[in-house]
Design a protein around this nucleic acid. Sequence first.
DNA 1: GCGAATGTTCCATGATTCTCGAACGGTGTG
DNA 2: CACACCGTTCGAGAATCATGGAACATTCGC
Lengths: 121, 121
Amino acid sequence: MPGSSRDLPHPEVEELVLTDVLFALSDPPRLAIVRQLAEGPLTEVSCQAVGGEIPKSTRSHHLKTLREAGVIRNVPHGRQRYVSLRREDLEARFPGLLAAVLGPEPERAATPAEPDPDLAR
Amino acid sequence: MPGSSRDLPHPEVEELVLTDVLFALSDPPRLAIVRQLAEGPLTEVSCQAVGGEIPKSTRSHHLKTLREAGVIRNVPHGRQRYVSLRREDLEARFPGLLAAVLGPEPERAATPAEPDPDLAR
DNA sequence: GCGAATGTTCCATGATTCTCGAACGGTGTG
DNA sequence: CACACCGTTCGAGAATCATGGAACATTCGC
């Protein structure tokens, strides 16, 4: 009984697979969760705090996908759980990836110029 | 008749969606194609030169996914086609992403030590 | 023009994936 | 100890995706 008994399996740093990480991040709801974890001031948040108002089973599945890919860590803490981003592990295995994914992306079609769409066609 | 008539649609730079790019790269065969395009000395290669020995319909589907995500460009050139990585466009929209994805990843489970898994808990 | 070559599109099949309600399992409180 | 709480797992349905054979265009050589 080391600590708690409800530990979920997490991949080691060396076992992180790039395509699995990319796939985990390629789903908008999951990417939103990751963004929330990254931008939030807290390193650890309870599960129900992430993902907004979605069914808890859906949220749990997304967290499972992210966890099995090695993107987040999910540890039991009393009656609830703490979810955190595996920043250093991801940085060690895939340098710059997380920064690029979390980087400036809120902009979408923000360029005012370019009234001529016939160029690249 | 600008150039040729067999142009396929390509998304503009501002229209590139991160999750679509990540999804396109999250499939091992597709990532292999991208790696081949990136590491090869040629900026443009014909379709049949990428992806190794796979059915051409499968290759064409993968190229379509990559193209629609904005990862590659596919332009007609005579009887065949030239496929190229959209390096600058990806760099402009998602700085550092391509470098992180193409970066050092050939290593897998190389650390022999770590017989004690109780640390990260 | 005819035919070979290159690559896309059409179609079908099997496998994943996404979503969410319901059931289950620990955990802390009165 | 019983109960409310938090989160995972189970199960099912719909949707999407991956793969590849066959048919269809387009281009170049003769």
